[in-house]
């Protein structure tokens, strides 16, 4: 019993420690201006991280828009096929999910930034998408496989073609599992910094052009956090708290949805 309590405490210390310390350091930084203004030039007080928030939304939005349809299609195929190709894809997704994100970053740099000859948000989105795809493939494969096989057969026996079975039976039946998969993948992608360091690089300015370097929350934390100036470090903590909350909300929402799915099944 005592051992149990100690183990729970040990397990919770890192979580509570990180979240607690981030709140302590980040919460005092928050103000209306912090969320509604772009950064001010160094030495001028005020300013905020609006450009980072918008940048993260744009980069992660692009990454999600590119990776979700692709990865869900792959997940659907893998879940329905018993072929060696499907087994190979599943294995590749498992391996890909374990690739260090810094390597994904230098890969995105090599492929996109070197080709375009400049840093850009779209290169960042590419890096994040590479992180998200294997997570989505694995999770959507799992979600599609929870759909009982006899539903597909029932549809087949009504004269359905494969495409309409996918659209009208498999996707709606797996919907809540797919929703969970998407939330967790976006949460993972949104927290990644390494792929962005090589690609979106960060920016002091407000921009919505995917062809330009762009700020993003993980970059803002890194670039400000390593500075010697306390004002910049404060911005890093404030941004860290926002990113943490954003990801916690996505994770909790995703896991609640999957728990609800588990109860229903």
């Amino acid at each position: 019993m005592v051992l149990c309590v100690i183990c729970v405490a040990l397990a919770l210390i890192p979580l509570v420690g990180v979240v607690g310390y981030t709140i302590v350091r980040g919460a005092p930084v928050w103000s209306a201006d912090f969320f509604t203004h772009a950064p001010t030039p160094e030495g001028i007080p005020g300013g905020g991280i609006l450009n980072s928030i918008v940048g993260s939304l744009i980069i992660d939005g692009m990454a999600a828009a590119a990776s979700i349809p692709l990865a869900l299609a792959i997940g659907l195929y893998v879940s329905q096929s018993h072929s060696k190709i499907a087994a190979g894809i599943r294995f590749a997704a498992d391996v890909m999910a374990g690739i260090p994100s810094i390597v994904v970053g230098i890969f995105a740099y090599g492929i996109i930034v070197n080709t375009m000859h400049h840093f850009s948000a779209i290169a960042g989105a590419f890096g994040i998408a590479v992180i998200m795809v294997p997570i989505l493939v694995r999770a959507s494969d799992g979600a599609f496989r929870t759909v009982p096989g006899d539903l597909g057969e029932a549809a087949l026996a009504l004269g359905a073609k494969r495409a309409s079975i996918a659209r009208r039976v498999l996707i709606p039946t797996a919907a809540s599992g797919l929703f969970t998969a998407i939330l967790l993948a976006v949460a993972r992608g949104a927290g990644e910094s390494a792929p962005l360091l090589f690609t979106a690089i960060g920016s002091q300015y407000f921009t919505a052009s995917p062809m330009q370097p762009m700020a993003a929350m993980p970059l803002t934390i890194y670039l400000n956090g390593i500075q010697a100036y306390p004002t910049l470090q404060r911005i890093a903590w404030g941004t860290g708290l926002l990113l943490l909350l954003f990801i916690l909300i996505l994770s909790v929402a995703g896991r609640t949805a999957s728990a609800r799915l588990g109860r229903r099944a």
């Binding site: 009982p148 006899d150 539903l151 057969e153 029932a154 549809a155 026996a157 009504l158 004269g159 359905a160 073609k161 309409s164 079975i165 009208r168 039976v169 709606p172 039946t173 919907a175």
Partner: peptide
């Protein structure tokens, strides 16, 4: 040539109406 299976298997994500007309919609 239709088929009825061992275990009742209506489409769980569909309403009663949508289940009945599902075959027509598939076609």
């Amino acid at each position: 040539v239709g088929m009825v299976f061992q275990r009742p298997n209506p489409f769980p994500a569909m309403s009663i109406y949508d289940n009945v007309v599902s075959g027509l919609r598939f076609n």
